[in-house]
Design a protein around this nucleic acid. Structure first.
Length: 578
RNA sequence: CGGGGCGUGGCUCAGCUGGCUAGAGCGCUCGGUUCGGGACCGAGAGGUCGUCGGUUCAAAUCCGACCGCCCCGACCA
């Protein structure tokens, strides 16, 4: 493509609202423009990259037997009511009405539609397993969109769903998808890591996220040299705390802490470090069970872990109102001592007290006194309070030990570009997605679902591959392979040679953007660096003196020259990488 | 949803204690000189100053409402 005939505007000034590297570069290099909050236009350069990622994903899925379909983005309320998600999904689900006042939603995902389709079309074990996938727009009305197309409201996604006669078969395919995803991101030229992911409300142990490693990522990953890697939302911790020595226990005492209830404030006020605090949190789980969770003051609750330990599908913070009623006082002063009795006295019930195992190592701890504006000091287990369940319920952080090998966990930031999930029968049972087995028995299908954020993958690649001048594309997903610059566009000979070279490359199947503009060389060089194609070729009077052209790789410092007829070597090199 | 900020040519922004024809840089068009790392000179095109209402002799400027955009927060007592 000749630049003079193409639609590409690079811009010098950075838009004021671009909040991360990839967004800045995508806007400056003319890949995307913002139309509204979390909604972007993809211009030719960006679109080419998007299509390349899409093609890689398609090829790899086809290899393992995936079959492509195309599903509606406007989906009827009815289906979402059946799975219960119309009410559960919240404001993220964009709801719309047609002229007849019928309600629909704009697809944030497609489990409902695909399961309904399979229910109607697939009825025999002979037709299973099947892996269906599609590419499509998704809309999730995020609270606060940010980071350009990495966390936009409208985005382009590949979603795949598999259906099976058994859990074993589903797991077999789960592994296939895992391997497939690894191939995909490898082909895209990304430095990534598959990590164990939290399964949240769906439960089960099988979900992995594929993380592109980048400091600007939103996700925190815990990993270990032994190979263990997990999202911190999920990461387990090796349990190691021993009980403290009772001979060191000091006398229990209440102290005044007027209007101070955060760990930070009380810690300062009493000059006791946060790691000697017992933080309390009330939750409500399934069947309105009241749960009191205890954790060390310097740690963070991990609700996923609590749900898993207690086998819950719901877990919410108790309302402040209920909290007050239970302890009969102000919010912020609850503590573990005799808390169940206090609740009972107030006509309430605490069903279970769950505590993080690190609390066993807290000597002479501090917590709320269950009295307004008072904290209790020198709290010790088991002398002063009881616990129903000890478990690992803290979010993994610096200093924690790997659950597999006991070494210290390390941490990194990542951008989640894909996730795979064993769903079980969550959707198939609610939507009555059954099949007949060889004994004429009606059975519920086992399902898996697998997503890749295509638009996010493009941004993640840039986030990971750039320098102060611009993007450094991995060849496989670069919009073009070569940025060709002609210096003296008013020199007929130079233009003729350039045209010759351009035609030759195009005929060999190489994608070339030819900068044939009447611009100063510096402008063209800077654009070449900014758009970041892997190869830059310069044709000029100087290079042609020896019948040569200049070649520079974007990821190398120095250019070199080759005879114009030797361009086939570059072509070969490109093809060998692709 | 709470707090803060912003809305002025395509982009980045100045002007805003009311006052003359609304500015700069970048980009764009035309002419000329330049030409291997974002040149220079000259001439242009392009704005109902987010929208609606109010105050005033006079509003981009003050007031109000609304709309839009951005940032922080909205689990961890």
């Amino acid at each position: 493509m000749r630049r003079t005939n193409y639609f590409l505007n690079t811009i010098r000034e950075t838009p004021s609202d671009a909040d991360n590297i990839s967004t800045r570069l995508m806007i400056k290099s003319g890949m995307i423009r913002k139309l509204a909050s979390g909604i972007y236009e993809w211009l030719p350069l960006g679109f080419r990259s998007l299509k390349k990622v899409e093609m890689i994903v398609r090829q790899e899925l086809d290899k393992i037997g995936g079959i492509e379909v195309w599903l509606p983005v406007i989906q009827p309320k009815e289906l979402w009511l059946k799975t219960g998600r119309w009410n559960v999904y919240g404001k993220e689900l964009l709801r719309i009405k047609d002229r007849k006042e019928q309600e629909y939603c704009f697809a944030p995902t497609a489990e409902e539609v695909i399961t309904d389709l399979v229910r109607k079309e697939i009825t025999s074990y002979r037709q299973l397993p099947i892996l269906l996938y599609q590419f499509g727009l998704k809309f999730r009305d995020e609270i606060r969109p940010r980071f350009g197309v990495m966390r936009s409201r409208e985005f382009y996604m590949k979603d795949a769903y598999s259906f099976h006669i058994s859990e074993e078969d589903c797991l077999k395919w789960y592994q296939k998808l895992y391997d497939c995803y690894s191939s995909i991101f490898k082909r895209c030229g990304l430095n990534f890591k598959p990590v164990e992911a939290a399964t949240g409300a769906i439960g089960g142990n099988y979900s992995h996220e594929f993380m592109v490693l980048a400091d600007t990522g939103e996700a925190d990953i815990a990993f270990c040299s032994c190979g263990y890697a997990a999202n911190v939302e999920k990461a387990e911790i090796k349990q190691s705390e021993n009980l403290t020595d009772p001979s060191l226990f000091e006398e229990l005492r209440d102290v005044e802490t007027p209007d101070l209830y955060t760990v930070e404030d009380v810690s300062k006020f009493l000059s006791v470090p946060p790691d000697r605090f017992i933080k309390t949190m009330f939750y409500v789980g399934d069947d309105n069970k009241v749960i009191l969770a205890l954790i060390r003051g310097d740690h963070q609750f991990n609700e996923n872990k609590i749900m898993k330990v207690l086998n819950l599908s719901l877990l919410e913070k108790l309302t402040e109102d209920e909290y007050s009623k239970i302890i009969g006082g102000k919010v912020g002063f609850a503590g573990p001592i005799s808390i169940k009795d206090i609740a009972q006295k107030n006509g309430k019930k605490i069903d279970v007290i769950i505590a993080d195992f690190h609390l066993k190592g807290v000597l002479n701890g501090v917590s709320g006194a269950n009295k307004d504006d008072k904290h209790t000091i020198n709290i010790n287990y088991p002398r002063d309070y009881s616990v129903d369940i000890w478990a690992d319920i803290k979010t993994a952080s610096e200093g924690d030990m790997c659950p597999k090998c006991g070494e210290k966990l390390r941490f990194a930031k990542g951008i989640e570009v894909g996730q795979i999930f064993k769903l079980g029968t969550k959707y198939s049972s609610k939507l009555e997605c059954y099949y007949l087995d060889e004994n004429q028995q009606k059975k519920t299908m086992e399902m898996g679902c697998y997503g890749i954020g295509i638009s996010r993958t493009v941004a993640a690649a840039i986030e990971q591959h750039n320098d102060e001048k611009g993007i450094i594309w991995p060849l496989a997903i670069s919009p073009f392979h070569i940025y060709m610059i002609t210096i003296e566009t008013d020199d007929n000979e130079v233009m003729k040679k350039s045209q010759y070279l351009y035609d030759k490359l195009i005929n060999l199947g190489i994608e070339v953007l030819w900068d044939d503009r009447d611009e100063r060389p510096g402008v063209k060089f800077n654009d070449a660096d900014l758009v970041g194609f892997p190869y830059r070729i310069v044709v000029s009077q100087k290079t042609l003196l020896n019948g040569e052209v200049e070649v520079k790789k974007r990821n190398e410092k120095l250019p070199f020259r080759i005879p114009i007829e030797k361009i086939d070597d570059i072509v070969k090199e490109i093809k060998s990488i692709l």
